[in-house]
């Protein structure tokens, strides 16, 4: 999933990924409300667009991400790039797309316009959104600015990389790299190398119970998300090598995201 505010370079990036792709992949553009530029730029490539209305479950009756995803599954493609709308909260869309039958979310990449970032982060209407998009990303890419990561962005995240306007895409963005990791169809021709799921742990689950669960399941590669208690919340970031649980005043999202290897189901009942 590619997130980021208007003008961050989402469509440009996707076009470059399409150009570099070894095999075709599908693109869904969620640009209802944006002016009609994104879809035109992707024209000629394999893709489709859909509309999603923020906020109201009733709107899901027609604004139907799940139906679009189901339709795409009939086609022969190995991966899907989802371009979020510029005002989408990345965490909410990640949760929504995790519902889709037959898909697994590989990663959320948020783009930030390095030249416009100071204005956006000072904008009373937009800064909470921009910060949320950065916080929810697996990986943040600064675009347009060549002189290092802008200090206002560096202050928000240590893990911001730069995407140059020229030259090659970072290796980690090459579609074959991303998609071989995780974004295989669960029910497709090949078994997935990795699976992804968001679970909702029971309230007041102790972090050490989670740590033990991870230790007992060597197939788990990554865990990220929140444990919510009655008075506070814990932000968890874990890999096989490292388990970090940090108390925070409140959760900025919901659920715990798990990525694990292999095609076997994981039983999460010890946590939920």
């Amino acid at each position: 999933m590619i997130a980021g505010y208007l003008g961050a370079g989402k469509t440009t990036l996707i076009n470059r990924m399409l150009a570099d792709a070894v095999q075709p992949f599908a693109v869904i553009v969620n640009d209802l409300g944006a002016l009609a530029v994104d879809e035109a730029l992707i024209a000629g490539q394999r893709g489709t667009t859909l509309s999603l209305t923020n906020g109201c479950a009733c709107c899901q009756i027609s604004a139907d991400l799940a139906a679009q995803l189901a339709r795409l599954r009939q086609d022969d493609f190995s991966a899907l790039v989802f371009e979020a709308s510029g005002v989408a909260k990345a965490s909410r869309l990640a949760t929504l797309t995790s519902q889709a039958e037959g898909y697994a979310l590989a990663k959320v990449v948020t783009l930030v316009d390095g030249l416009d970032a100071p204005r956006l982060l000072a904008d009373a209407y937009l800064s909470p959104l921009i910060k949320e998009q950065i916080a929810a990303a697996d990986w943040v890419l600064q675009t347009k600015r060549s002189k290092g990561v802008h200090p206002s962005l560096a202050a928000l995240s240590k893990d911001i990389d730069q995407l140059s306007s020229q030259g090659r895409l970072p290796a980690a963005l090459a579609p074959e790299y991303c998609f071989e990791q995780t974004a295989r169809l669960e029910a497709g021709i090949k078994a997935p190398l990795f699976q992804h799921r968001v679970i909702f742990p029971r309230p007041d689950l102790a972090p050490d119970v989670l740590q033990t669960f991870i230790a007992d399941h060597p197939e788990i590669e990554r865990v990220k998300g929140w444990l919510v208690g009655s008075t506070d919340a814990v932000l968890v970031q874990a890999t096989r090598a490292h388990f970090q649980a940090r108390a925070v005043a409140r959760a900025h999202g919901q659920g715990l995201q798990f990525i694990w290897r292999g095609d076997a189901e994981l039983n999460f009942s010890a946590l939920t």
Binding site: D64, R92, T95, Q99, E101, F200
Partner: peptide
């Protein structure tokens, strides 16, 4: 649907984001 967010198979319950699955 097992393990999907905001769906409880045992209870037959689909809520918030999980509702999208049922609506589809």
């Amino acid at each position: 649907i097992s393990g999907r967010a905001q769906i409880d198979f045992e209870a037959g319950r689909f809520f918030e984001n999980g509702l999208a699955f049922a609506i589809q």
